[in-house]
């Protein structure tokens, strides 16, 4: 078996704060193959964004401790020197962020900001880089790219700014694109355009994508594989089909049940996960989800409180329930609540 293109092993990231040490990521492992899309889903504070800043070494080294391994195409990144990381960033690995207005500098033209990484990584002249930037702007669907490249970000609309971000990220033809909630700040019709654009560009460039979002609908649309994160760790992983059609973790069940859908049954209320995510300053012992879990009494003994279930490579979910239990609970108790609403045929 060839090693994965990106392989993260037992990653721990913690921040020192005034209140104590926040364990933002705690024992995370995953793989990503070339040209594939991994969707990472989780709520705020689940550690999904931190993980991805750490891949590129963009965390603040003053307050952050990183342990574990991040291997990209055979290169270890957690111990890599800053100058080596700089060569990767924007070149082999690119990122796009949530809010394209604050993620683009207000002081420089869009064209310049797009051209910069191309000049840096290919050594192209200013003129050649500008030409390439205009070309990329056209590719992501900005009308009149040659004129619009001279505009500043505030002269662009929200959707156009995110397109410009994508042009900037793809200008050096990266092997991996990390997209951190790239459509959360956009309107739904614009989001649909951007998601389609990303999919089409991925097909053309053969880029692997890590797609971070809190929206399961977006993930279902974009990803090949899904990883669900909760309180700093992965709790479930599998193909989109596996995770969405036969989920195996109580938290995933909770997410699916609490999410209103356009086709959900309206006669029953949503079934939210009770409580709120734990503080990462003092995470609960054992399974991090147990204080909010309705199924812990079905696990023998006190294991949910004493022993932290881990997501091993051969297991799809980090839960102490047996495979059989997970299957029966999902079929008997969770799935009926996910049924479609009656189609109104009057």
């Amino acid at each position: 078996m060839t090693p994965a293109f990106l392989s993260v092993r037992d990653l721990h990231v913690s921040f020192r704060t005034e209140d104590g040490v926040v364990r933002a990521v705690d024992g995370l492992s995953f793989d990503l193959d070339q040209g594939k899309t991994l969707g990472i889903v989780g709520e705020s504070g689940s550690g999904k964004s931190v993980t991805n800043l750490t891949i590129l070494g963009l965390h603040n080294p003053l307050f952050t401790t990183v342990e574990g391994e991040i291997v990209l195409d055979g290169q270890e990144l957690t111990t890599a020197h800053e100058s080596e990381l700089e060569k990767l960033r924007g070149n082999k690995v690119a990122m796009i962020f949530q809010d394209p207005l604050s993620a683009l500098s207000p002081y420089y033209t869009v064209g310049r900001q797009i051209a910069e990484p191309y000049m840096k990584h290919t050594g192209a002249s200013r003129k050649a880089a500008w030409k390439r930037a205009v070309e990329m702007l056209g590719k992501v669907g900005i009308p009149h790219p040659a004129e619009r490249a001279k505009d500043y970000p505030h002269q662009f609309s929200g959707g156009m700014r995110q397109r410009a971000m994508i042009a900037m990220a793809l200008i050096c033809d990266p092997d991996l694109l990390i997209a951190d909630e790239p459509t959360t700040a956009l309107d739904v019709t614009v989001q649909a355009q951007i998601l389609d654009l990303l999919k089409d560009l991925q097909r053309e460039f053969g880029t692997a994508i890590i797609f971070i979002t809190h929206d399961l609908g977006v993930i279902a649309d974009m990803a090949d594989d899904i990883m669900v994160m909760y309180a700093g760790g992965a709790i479930e992983r599998g193909t989109v089909r596996e995770v969405l059609r036969s989920p195996r973790h109580p938290y995933t069940w909770g997410l699916l049940n609490s999410m209103p859908r356009l086709d959900s049954d309206l006669s029953t209320p949503l079934s939210p996960v009770p409580g709120a995510p734990p503080s990462l300053l003092t995470p609960p012992p054992g399974c991090r989800f147990h204080p909010r879990c309705a199924f812990q009494d079905r696990v023998g003994g006190n294991r949910c409180v004493t022993e932290r279930p881990l997501l091993a490579p051969d297991r799809a979910s980090a839960c102490h329930l047996t495979a059989q239990q997970k299957h029966t609970i999902f079929i008997d108790e969770i799935k009926p609540r996910l049924r479609h609403g009656q189609e109104d045929t009057a």
Binding site: A192, G217, L256
Partner: peptide, 11 residues
């Protein structure tokens, strides 16, 4: 608008 909403197919 409705067609643009990304949806999860759970069935």
């Amino acid at each position: 608008l409705l067609s643009a909403v990304p949806e999860v197919n759970v069935t």
